[in-house]
Design a protein around this nucleic acid. Sequence first.
DNA 1: GCTTGACTTAGAGTGCGCTCTAACTTTTAA
DNA 2: TTAAAAGTTAGAGCGCACTCTAAGTCAAGC
Lengths: 132, 132
Amino acid sequence: MTAALTIKQVAEKTALSVHTLRYYERCGLIASVDRASNGHRRYSADDIRWIKFLNRLRLTGMPIRQMQQYAKLVRQYPDAAFGDRRQLLENHRETVTRQIHQLQENLAVVDWKIQHYSELEDKLNEHSKINS
Amino acid sequence: MTAALTIKQVAEKTALSVHTLRYYERCGLIASVDRASNGHRRYSADDIRWIKFLNRLRLTGMPIRQMQQYAKLVRQYPDAAFGDRRQLLENHRETVTRQIHQLQENLAVVDWKIQHYSELEDKLNEHSKINS
DNA sequence: GCTTGACTTAGAGTGCGCTCTAACTTTTAA
DNA sequence: TTAAAAGTTAGAGCGCACTCTAAGTCAAGC
């Protein structure tokens, strides 16, 4: 068996704060974490896997609302609703893919500007050479 | 000469709201827009180019604070400080590039999960075929 | 003359995702 | 035994980037 972890240990493992872990639990993203006899949370290996995946979703910009939907599906039908879950993730993938494209597109314009500044700098340098 | 545009027209052209345009002006991102005799804003072609570039920065996630720095450089030294401006944009480019990489990395995990769900669905389908 | 609609300002409100506080209990180490 | 560290809850607060409201001005068309 694997040792159950305290909230602080999970915070370190997942790079979320203890505040955020409690917040996620409060708003239904993490369900029913075991408690020690003193009421302290004890996280299982499964909990940690789940939290890490949740965090992947967050880091791709999925809103909490949508994560709640996903979490609900997983909780209600642990061994089913794979189609619905997949659909939700695929929609999200599409969103993120579009977002990445737009980032790249906008970044290209910034690149262009950087290039432009480089050329202006070069011109200034040449000018100062001539005048020296 | 090009016709000066009203705030509403600029909102349409830039896909920002009139509220946002005033907000950007208030916080120093857009400086000194001309006014008609009645006090209404009249935007020049240059203003619009500037606003569009600002928006590129925003769409790549640059914080307002940093845009303010950049705007300040441009305003204080319209024909100089190219090095500083370039540096600022290059730092930002680096940030965005890293962000894109991380998005792709996290998205790969989501993809993996989608794949996993597909396989589970397939198994369920086979099972129902056998049992039918 | 009067309505409609676009504009102005200062400042308040909103939604998101945390992040922190207060007041309290429990555990651990000196 | 006692101080420090870590846990608990409910609920308040924060930072960001808008977004909207209220109260007013102004110009054009009926």
